[in-house]
Every structure is written in C-alpha cells, then in structure tokens.
C-alpha cells in the first residue's frame, strides 16, 4: 500500500543531491561497466558515448544548482567517492556501515534537514 500519511517534507538540496546521485550512478555504469553499456547499445540502441555526454551536461547543470555550502561539501566528497549521498537503512549508514544515532535516524521528518554521516562524511538520506 502507498503510505497513507502525508509525505514528510524533504530538504530541497537533498532532492537535488538524490537526483545527482542517480545520474552519477548511471554515468558510472555506462563509463565503467561494459555489460551495462552493451545492454544500452544492443537492446536500446543508445550510443554510450553520446549518453555520457548528455549525462555529464545534466550532472553539471544540477551541480550548479547546489547552494554554495552544499556545493563545497559535495566537491570535497565527490572526487573520492562513488556515492555522495548514501541511504540510511534501519539506522545504519550504507556508506560506512556504522550505526547512526537514533536522534539522527529515527525522526520521520529527518530528511527535512540536510545531514551528513559523522563517520564517513557522506550526505545521508534516511529511508523511512
């Protein structure tokens, strides 16, 4: 069943980061995973090189829409990590597999605040 209670609000910058994360995942997959690129080429007739160009432009556009402090942190994290935003599932950060304090992870409206994991520094998205 679809959640019946109103959707908890989400920080607008977190929404952008989630979009960015999804785009970066697709970019990585096309760039590094030959099997994935082959499926896109052979099943869907997509030119992986052209797709990478399009994705790169979309990523850049979204990155430019981040606020200055978020962008600064994003720029610090992104060169070294595939995932800038990591999910928190059942109280565990899936970036470093360290438990997140209940006060951080337990609130239904936790995604309204942009937070980072104290252990690995990634932005976190709490899956409620």
């Amino acid at each position: 069943m679809k959640p019946s209670s109103p959707t908890p609000p989400m920080h607008p910058q977190l929404m952008i980061l989630l979009e960015l994360q999804d785009l970066r995942a697709k970019y990585r997959e096309l760039e590094r995973d030959e099997a994935s690129a082959a499926v896109e080429r052979e099943v869907f007739n997509v030119d992986p090189d052209e797709a990478l160009t399009g994705l790169g432009e979309a990523i850049e556009k979204l990155e430019n829409s981040l606020s200055a402090p978020v962008r600064a942190r994003y720029d610090r994290i992104s060169p070294n990590r595939d995932r800038v935003v990591v999910p928190v599932l059942r109280g565990v950060c899936y970036g470093c597999f360290v438990s997140i304090p209940t006060a951080t992870a337990g609130d239904q409206e936790v995604n309204q605040v942009l937070q980072g994991c104290e252990s690995c520094g990634s932005f976190i998205y709490v899956v409620t």
């Binding site: 069943m1 679809k2 959640p3 959707t7 908890p8 989400m10 929404m15 989630l18 979009e19 999804d22 785009l23 697709k26 896109e40 869907f44 007739n45 997509v46 030119d47 052209e50 797709a51 399009g54 994705l55 979309a58 995604n111």
Partner: peptide, 23 residues
C-alpha cells in the same frame, strides 16, 4: 507505491534516462 517525494525523484531519473534514447 512509493511516497510522493520518492515518486517525483524517480520520475525525473526515468525521464533523464528516456532523454538519452527511448526505452
């Protein structure tokens, strides 16, 4: 049956994939 915010994010991601070439 995701929540509204998740639906919105997913829609954008699927749209971006469609923009690379129709599925």
């Amino acid at each position: 049956e995701l929540d509204d915010k998740s639906e919105a994010i997913l829609f954008k991601t699927l749209k971006r994939r469609e923009n690379l070439g129709s599925t």
